[in-house]
Write a protein that binds this DNA or RNA. Structure first.
Length: 435
RNA sequence: GUGGAAGUAGCUCAGUCGGCUAGAGCACCAGAUUGUGGUUCUGGGGGUCGCGGGUUCAAGUCCCGUCUUCCACCCCA
């Protein structure tokens, strides 16, 4: 009986695995360049962990199971709750600042579509314990540093940055009650994604008050953060909060400019982020034409640790999935379609059955010395073996043939230059591989 | 969860009005090739035509169901 693969999953055959490694290795390298440390957690957690801050619908999109002890568990759909748990458990002994990254494998029981599967990898960056806008800027910088490193310029991708705190202060300042904010966020989040009149209708349904709706429009149409100063709020307390959030956002933009990423960044009041998760600066990186879904998203979530029963602790972070990124890189021609699946320093060509033992000895010696080396299981024509060596991206080839039978010499061929020379096999075997 | 399209070799696909033993290219394996690199030529393996049912003398082809994939919604931590 033939068993099919599971809906929304991928098989990573070596060439596909090479692509995945290309993405993951790049993520890890960028993280380390910015001083982040790697962590990971278990692939499943108590179901409750995801019910704490999520609604029914999100729980429906979890793969959940009951273990033999009756525990309700779920495969992780994100790693931030795990991070919050891990940090909370050892908060008093962890050196600060906590700058951690991870590339977890995540699962969500959603319907697969372009740029979204049921199992995927996601690069996560988080800085815990730093309220300074410099930390937000550093998360965004590291994200952009990676994207720049794989060849995406400011004409290809743009970081759209805004602030939940700014928006909240503004909405309260317009007279919108605190309790209604969570209902308004998803509507504003939709603005760039739906036609103007559809947005208008959603907004009016949610905010019937003419004056408030007009005020929201004024805010949503801004493009220059400097214009924020021109928005006046009659409520003194909110005006103060608004001003504080405005400075904070301006600081983030200023730091990013200093970090050489100014061309990638712009203020976009349409960046709200769907759920009531974020508390301050929020951002998304989009492909310039906006044809794909967001490449990544993140922001400040100062309440999350406390929500998970930990201490109050400021935090800011980012998540980037592999699916959309791969589509984008492919579209832009930035993904080689022949990434090597292995890279050998040496292959050994054995041309004579009588030399098989010597060939195996040579391969093993190379391997024991730390070099990647391989050989065929049976002697074969030199042409065929060189073809195989080229396909395996071998740097050099050691040829065991008639020279060995004559006077124990082997031929070493450099596959880049094509140059070759004869060397004494015993000298070679005693460690002179690179002479 | 809703709607649309598609499923034929490992991959990309052809297969006429329902009619002969279901084909091509690529890939893979072997040989030509008994010592020099992704060339060329020859040969080979590989198919329950997604699966199940129906109509028919006859189904890859028509009908129904189902599964999977892709696309658009819902949602997006």
């Amino acid at each position: 009986m033939k068993i099919p693969s599971v809906k929304g999953t991928r098989d990573f055959y070596p060439p596909v695995m090479a692509v995945r490694n290309f993405l993951v290795d790049g993520w890890k390298a960028a993280s380390r360049r910015s001083g982040f440390e790697e962590y990971d957690g278990p692939i499943f957690e108590h179901l409750m962990m995801y019910q704490v801050k999520s609604g029914e619908e999100i729980v429906e999109q979890l793969f959940h199971l009951t273990d033999r002890g009756g525990r309700e568990l779920a495969i992780r759909p994100e790693i931030t709750p795990t991070l919050a748990r891990m940090v909370g458990q050892q908060i008093n002994s962890l050196p600060r600042p906590i700058k951690w990254f991870s590339v977890p494998r995540l699962c969500r029981a959603e319907r697969p579509q372009k740029g979204r599967l049921r199992e995927f990898f996601q690069w996560n960056l988080d800085i815990v314990g730093v309220a300074d806008p410099l930390a937000d800027a550093e998360v965004i910088f590291t994200t952009l540093d990676y994207l720049a490193g794989v060849g995406l310029g400011p004409a290809d991708v743009q970081a759209r940055i805004s602030s939940r705190r700014l928006l909240a202060a503004y909405l309260r300042g317009l007279g919108l009650d605190e309790s209604r904010l969570d209902a308004v966020y998803p509507v504003l989040d939709k603005k760039p994604k739906v036609p103007p009149d559809a947005f208008e209708e959603m907004l009016r349904t949610c905010v019937p008050e003419e004056a408030i709706a007009v005020g929201i429009h004024r805010f949503m149409e801004l493009t220059d953060p400097a214009d924020l100063a021109g928005l006046s709020l009659s409520d003194g307390t909110q005006a103060e909060a608004f001003e504080a959030a405005r400075r904070e956002l301006a600081d983030v933009m200023r730091w990013l400019d200093r970090m050489g990423m100014g061309a990638y960044c712009r203020f976009d009041p349409g960046i709200v982020r769907g759920l009531a998760y974020y508390t301050g600066v929020v951002f998304e990186v989009h492909e310039a034409t906006g044809s794909l879904r967001a490449i990544c998203g993140g922001g400040r979530y100062d309440n999350l640790l406390a929500d998970f029963g930990g201490p109050a602790m400021p935090a800011t972070g980012m998540g980037m999935g592999d699916c959309v990124l791969e589509i984008l890189l492919r579209e832009k021609g930035l993904l080689a379609d022949d990434l090597p699946t292995r890279r050998l320093d040496w292959t050994v060509c054995c041309l004579d059955e009588a030399l098989m033992e010597t060939a195996v000895e040579a391969v093993a010696a190379l391997r024991r010395s730390g070099r990647a080396a391989d050989m065929a299981y049976k002697p074969a024509g030199l042409g065929k073996q060189l073809k195989w060596a080229a396909a395996a991206h071998a740097g050099r080839v050691a040829i065991l043939g008639r020279e060995f039978l004559e006077d124990r010499r082997i031929i070493i061929k450099d596959m880049q230059t094509g140059e070759q020379k004869g060397v004494d096999f015993d000298r070679f075997l005693s460690g002179h591989y690179d002479d």
